[in-house]
Simulated scan of single mutants.
Amino acid sequence: MNPSQIPIRDIKPLLPIPDVSFYIFTALIAAGVLIVAAGTIYVWRRWHFGRKSDPRISWVKRLEQMDFSDAKRSAYLMTKYGRLLAEDKRRQEIMAQLLPKLERYKYKKRVPPLDEETKRFMKLFIEMSKDAL
């Protein structure tokens, strides 16, 4: 048979192939932006809230805001937070001297006002604790 005599079968046109590469590229860019944003937020929150998590800062603030006119409450607060804040040798020595002085202001219904020497020791301890932070 001659090639020109071959019967032509029905030749169909080319089918269009859907091009989704643009959508895949857009999805990858969006996922990358979300991952970078989530990582940035995580690092920022970790850094921002991590630096405020030191409880010693709040203890010193409570001692600074302590009302010296209420001797009983002052003695209890100073004992509680003073023991927690006495980390170095100097502050431990001051607390060792201060605790017996505070004993007369605790465990009683009515207590006398704080004497000046006890107030001075308490303020000295608070200042030393603030400087140590």
Rank of each mutant, 00 (worst) to 15 (best):
W59I: 12
T40P: 01
E93W: 04
L84T: 11
G82N: 05
Q65I: 05
Y76N: 02
R62C: 10
Q92L: 13
A38V: 02
M122P: 01
S58A: 13
S74N: 08
F125A: 00
F49L: 10
E117A: 09
K61Y: 11
Y42F: 12
D115A: 15
A37E: 00
L99Y: 06
I126K: 01
P100Y: 02
P3M: 11
W47G: 09
V60Y: 03
D131V: 02
K106W: 06
P55G: 02
R110P: 00
V60N: 03
V33H: 00
Y42R: 06
P55R: 05
K61W: 09
T40D: 01
M95P: 06
D115Y: 14
Y105Q: 03
T79I: 11
I6C: 10
I94F: 09
K130H: 00
K108G: 12
S4P: 05
K61S: 12
R91Q: 13
I24Y: 05
I94Q: 05
Y81N: 06
K123C: 12
F22R: 06
K109Q: 05
R51M: 04
D131N: 08
P7G: 04
D88Y: 08
M78K: 07
K108Y: 14
R91T: 11
Q5A: 15
M1C: 13
P112F: 03
I57V: 14
R73E: 14
K101W: 12
E117C: 04
F68K: 05
E87I: 13
P112R: 14
R83Q: 15
K12C: 11
L102Q: 08
S58G: 14
P18D: 06
Y105F: 15
R46C: 03
T79N: 05
Y105K: 02
F25A: 15
D131W: 04
E116V: 08
G50V: 05
M78N: 03
G39A: 07
D67T: 08
L98I: 02
R120G: 12
Y23H: 05
K80I: 13
W59H: 10
K130Q: 02
Y23F: 07
K72Q: 15
D131M: 09
G50L: 09
I35V: 13
P13A: 04
K108T: 08
E64F: 01
K52M: 09
T40K: 07
E127L: 03
R56A: 15
V60F: 01
T26F: 00
R51P: 01
A31H: 03
A96I: 04
A31W: 06
V36P: 00
Q97A: 08
L99S: 14
M1K: 13
Q97F: 10
W59Y: 12
A37V: 06
I8K: 11
D70K: 04
F121L: 14
R51C: 01
W59S: 05
V111I: 15
S21M: 04
S53A: 14
L28I: 15
I29C: 09
T40N: 11
D54W: 04
A75L: 10
L99P: 10
R110L: 06
P55W: 11
T118Y: 11
D131E: 11
P113L: 04
A38G: 00
H48W: 02
D54S: 07
S21H: 02
Q5F: 14
Q65P: 03
L114E: 00
L99N: 07
Q5R: 12
D88N: 14
L102H: 04
A31V: 11
K61V: 04
